[in-house]
Nucleic acid binder design. Structure first.
Lengths: 345, 345
DNA sequence: CGACCGGTAGAGAGCGCTCTCATCCGATCA
DNA sequence: TGATCGGATGAGAGCGCTCTCTACCGGTCG
């Protein structure tokens, strides 16, 4: 048995500094109410011993964990091949780091993982959760919400729970879609089609509504259902082309979809934007710049969405034990979108 | 003060089942050595109370955390816009989940974060670490390695530490590069150029060496330095075009680089592959399929790399307290690559 | 000059769990 | 039938920390 020099404890530091555990604890946690010479002695002992507090012991008594879970339901692997999520994660990470909070990532691969996630959250590892709810029928968000732990959702959840207040961050999908379609109309396009995203996600539904806001009387045949993938975009583009002669513009629910659509247009010998103008959504780079022609698209500040989610959650965590006087933090935050003009429209 | 029904403890379950804490603990942890009728009674009590063990308390005594850290140094934001990392993360997550181990993500934004990461790892939150070491001069990997915690690296680390054994998972960058260049040569191309990646990363160096393996006598002017980005690819492609008349093929260090190169070629009116053939690396989708023309590239199984990293780490964790008899797990694992033929070469 | 006070330090009780050890019980053997 | 044995159960001691509560100290005021 090699004598593993196990990590020094508070006790050890106290002994070395010649003070009590309580005093060391005070110094380590901010040093309120300890006179300077003593505090200094403690600090030196901490440094000499390389003392680092044991989180497990600390959590056991404080019931805080300084960690939040990020839960990503990923029924389709698509989500992950998608820089969208990565960017959001980055925003989250930055904000959490700035508040000394750790990020525990929970990826779920299907229904069988729900129990595991539920158990984990109930197990008291984290103080709150950031949840990406992707589909209407996903029971996970509801489960978590009901676990009674502070939660912030990424994207407006598909269900409306009258009782609980749902906190979420979303981007202005509907407004962005309106902007895209108006841009096409402004270009003089008379028959503007729309390829939707997967309609079991609020983002897809909202974008479709934005389209309808601008073109309430559009021929229903101008709308084809996609699924946010390039393959779905191809399929829908073919449909549209076959059933809508005279089509001169397409608003695709995201850039991936648009890239599929572009491929079909090229294949059919149609020129973009001369014959048909195309607008995407997301401004997913490098894809949006690299398509042929480069894609005009609706940009959302994805990283900022992540940052905001984290900030909202941290707010909730701090306010939980506090007085209930201050104004409640907003329950939903919607970030603006902007149109990025490139060559495709 | 609302009477917050706090989570039930072992004690509560024991009382309900009419047994001792020890017995409940035994049942909860696998149920060895508890007779069936009693065990059943305990299980029912657990279910009725909705008992979930408190991890902090458990870790405090077991010194295990059933969690590992994934440390990603991200000096440039590039890493994250890159599906490469996301896929690896997915592989890691799958493997860890299968072994009831949590994933704590530590993203570092620069040198100032190193201390934080060090403190976190030292703080006893996790049992091991998975580290992505990207640059030769990054001190982080060394720091972590020295922290005495089991570590597995993603990608071969740039430093060779004679004393410590370094465990890593990498893909066969050199072999893949050879395959790519041989393919171009086999196509009858006589002047094959190479756009490198960022040469402070082993993957870039290895790919360059693979190129040189096949073309040891190539004109040095045929090699231009890139940085794994589309912009770098454009710049390098221009250089190559300007100084190497007769160039008829290019092997780019990754698909992003290749996409930049393609753009320049199109701009100059050169046809791909007729005038110049292009091969990339990574098979990053959807990009590689979406370029014009679709990219011939070297595929690596990124998700599998992640899975393997996790597996290797879990192996180490189990074997740490064990006898030293069994064969040591491999210190480096290199995964094979394959060539994916599309239209660009 | 003594009672009082604000603030600093220490003592000690737990947080919820695991794990060792002692205890107990029924079964087995001579 | 009684000593012995082995496996099932319970008792209790911590793991390392925080936090309350008490003790104490010097200084101030009446």
């Amino acid at each position: 048995m090699t004598e593993t020099a196990s990590r020094p404890t508070l006790e050890a530091v106290a002994a070395r500094a010649g003070v009590s555990r309580a005093t060391v604890s005070r110094v380590v946690n901010g040093g309120e109410g300890v006179r300077e010479p003593l505090a200094e002695r403690v600090r030196r002992a901490v440094a000499e011993l390389g003392y680092v507090p044991n989180q497990a012991a600390r959590s056991l008594v404080t019931k805080r964990h300084d960690a939040v879970a990020v839960v990503v339901a990923e029924p389709e692997s698509r989500v992950f091949a998608d820089p969208f999520f990565a960017l959001q994660l980055r925003g989250i990470s930055k904000e959490l780091t700035a508040h000394d909070t750790q990020l525990v990532l929970l990826l779920t691969e299907g229904r069988e993982d729900h129990a595991r996630v539920g158990r984990y959250l109930a197990g008291g590892h984290v103080d709150g959760a950031l949840v990406f709810s992707l589909h209407f029928d996903d029971p996970l968000p509801g489960l978590i919400q009901r676990a009674g732990m502070p939660v912030v959702f990424g994207g407006r959840p598909g269900w409306s729970d009258g009782t609980d207040e749902v906190v979420y961050v979303d981007s202005d999908n509907r407004g962005g879609a309106r902007r895209a379609v108006r841009h096409l109309v402004g270009l003089g396009r008379g028959r503007v089609g729309h390829i939707t995203g997967a309609l079991d996600q609020t983002s897809a539904v909202d974008r479709l509504e934005g389209y309808r806001d601008v073109l309430p009387d559009a021929d229903p045949a101008l709308v084809a259902e996609g699924d946010f993938t390039p393959a779905g975009g191809e399929r829908a583009m073919r449909e549209l082309l076959d059933r809508c002669p005279g089509l001169d513009a397409v608003f695709a629910a995201n850039d991936l979809t648009a890239s599929g659509a572009l491929r079909v247009l090229r294949e059919r010998g149609l020129r973009v934007p001369d014959d048909i103008a195309v607008v995407g959504f997301d401004d997913m780079l490098p894809l949006a710049e690299q398509t042929d022609p480069p894609l005009t698209t609706v940009r959302q500040d994805i990283e900022e969405m992540g940052r905001l989610m984290a900030r909202l959650l941290l707010d909730r965590l701090d306010r939980r034990p506090a007085d209930g006087t201050a104004a409640d933090p907003p329950s939903g935050v919607v970030l603006p979108t902007t149109l990025v003009r490139r060559a495709s429209a």
